[in-house]
Amino acid sequence: MSSHNNSSHDTFEYWEQYRKKIFSSKGGWKAGQDVYCHGHSIMHELLGNITYMQMIILNATGRLVKKILADMFDALFICLSWPDSRIWCNQIGALCGSNKTEVVAATVSGILAADSRIYGGSQTCIQGMQTIKNALTSYKKNLSIADIVKKHPVKQDRPMVFGYVRPVNGKDERIAPMLKLQKKLGIEIQEHLSLATKISDYLTEHYGEGMNILGYACAFSADHGFSGEELYRIRATSVLSGVTACFVDTANKTPETFLPLRCDDISYEGIKKRSLT
């Protein structure tokens, strides 16, 4: 028998302290006076002095970062704000527009769709951050870049390294401008991003696959002390603007003119016609 017994369990008294009461470690509203966020006065300290991205990071992580760091995150959001309705989350926004939903439903649907294991700026942060942190640990133990890459599974002849594979196109056009911006803002490349670049060079040479924007975002964020969970929270809504754009595009057009499908555009691969007995 186990060593557990009833006396080790809570009673419902534990829940009573929370009944009809909110304890917030984030902040709150003092009606008619001010609003507080992690000890900062929003009305008298933050408003007018910080950017919206600084506020997003503060609310998501509790850290009030410098403006130049927030500007990098701002740019990362822009990198996921494509008005191209072929991208899955944007396509959902476009379908909503074509179906005449409201913009909020469309945008939220797109954000949810980007919370994916394979693309988008949110859920993939967890794996992407773990990948670069594990890689750095291995690298510091003198593993070669080739050995680090070998640790990852291979699909369709390509190593599936989070942050280095794109479903559609190998080269990510966003990396060079982000590095250029980082340089312009005077933010040094530190150990995670330095290693990420080496992995990118190796993969480009051997597989034609460089670092993608996720890999950059994770390495950059790791260099600045963010965890994967924190990055996930900061970037939870990062695709919203592109989704809205694609919604607006189709909302203004004739319903169902966005990629209409004929019956034979769907390939039926199931059981042949049968009757109920």
Partner: peptide
Amino acid sequence: KTIKTKLSFSKKTKTKIWYE
């Protein structure tokens, strides 16, 4: 290795559930 920059996407959506 052969450089492969694109995954192979299907030309049609497939389903075993519904035939129209």
